[in-house]
Design a protein around this nucleic acid. Structure first.
Lengths: 192, 192
DNA sequence: TTTATAGTTGACTATTTGGTAAAGATAGGG
DNA sequence: CCCTATCTTTACCAAATAGTCAACTATAAA
């Protein structure tokens, strides 16, 4: 599953063959099909597996004990670090694997599309809670937290996907300040 | 080229075969390879061709004679209409063809990646000029128009890509108001 | 030692892929 | 009427594709 995620993320779902995945995972194809019914099946399982790995980390970053706006900047900084490490390793900016995969196959594979949607919604929840907290603490004005969260999420996803396409982290570096501007955070509120 | 754009947009670059494109265009494969050196070549040519079609339209929507914020709402409304028509026709929300294609092949095909970047930058120019004008006319506060334009562009692209993945136009319907909120447009300024 | 279960293996298909090559058509200018 | 340049067609290829399958092995309980 790790091999699959990496290969698909680095290239694309369509151009990643089961043979290639098996080779990278040092597994024979027969074995592979003993555990997974299809390539699509593997992708779904790999996404869920990958999420499990990240969830613990996200829970820490988005802990309610941390001031809301700090949660966001911390998270965006972590995303940047992750993308920088990947760029160094692979030579390409890879963006968000869920978005990339979902965008590619959503009209052709409903199982994958559904799973991507499910996991994206889990991410959205973190943002929503954070923005609600920030509003509660009068750090920002966001009476409709769900709306603001979707706005922020769309922005973040746009930045990451652009980063992949342009093969540049410039936009990702500005993401934290962009998010603050988007949320209407005044400099004073940020300092406070 | 039209057949290619449509098929790739509806499915993906990897899953669209040259055979399928030829069949849809009612052209024999031999003829196809007389005019295009490769599938990648066709994609690049098709993108440029498609842009030419849209440019005239964009120039009209973003005409300097129209109040800046109106240009934006007009444009986003047009995007929505276009996506609605496509959804009705194809049964799927398709989002932005450039983004979809670029995101899929950017690590594997530099010719396509470069062309996508080039055309995306042309779009960005429209937004930049518009925001500069809006700032000039004190409709919004955007001393750094380039930054704000990139912010807005990332948001719009995020919304469109999410729409494709979620197969829903909900986010696109809110895009116009989302953009205004993102730009910090007060209700009074919008009315003025 | 037997036996059942779980997992592994490599050889195998049938189909599809992007791309080629060479023979044929078509039309316009000399 | 012929020649040349511009296409079109047909038949083809080698490689890669997702998926299958029957034979094999490892393990561990009875």
């Amino acid at each position: 599953m790790e091999a699959a995620i990496n290969l698909i993320w680095e290239n694309s779902y369509g151009s990643t063959s089961v043979d290639a995945i098996c080779a990278k995972a040092k597994v024979k194809k027969g074995s592979f099909y003993y555990f997974f019914a299809s390539k699509s099946d593997l992708a779904v399982a790999a996404m869920e597996d990958n999420w499990q790995t990240k969830q613990a980390d996200l829970d820490r970053v988005f802990s309610p004990t941390i001031p809301p706006l700090e949660r966001l900047t911390n998270y965006f900084n972590r995303v940047l670090e992750c993308q920088e490490a990947l760029q160094k390793e692979k030579g390409y900016v890879l963006g968000c694997p869920l978005f990339t995969l979902g965008c590619e196959v959503c009209t052709q594979d409903q199982a994958i599309r559904g799973k991507v949607e499910e996991i994206l919604n889990r991410y959205l929840k973190y943002l929503e809670t954070t923005i609600r907290d920030a509003h509660e603490q009068r750090l920002i004005v966001a009476p409709n937290a769900a709306f603001k969260a979707k706005l922020l999420f769309a922005y973040a996803q746009g930045v990451l996907t652009q980063a992949r396409i342009l093969n540049s982290l410039d936009g990702v570096r500005e993401m934290s300040s962009g998010a603050m501007e988007l949320l209407g955070v005044t400099q004073t509120a940020a300092a406070a």
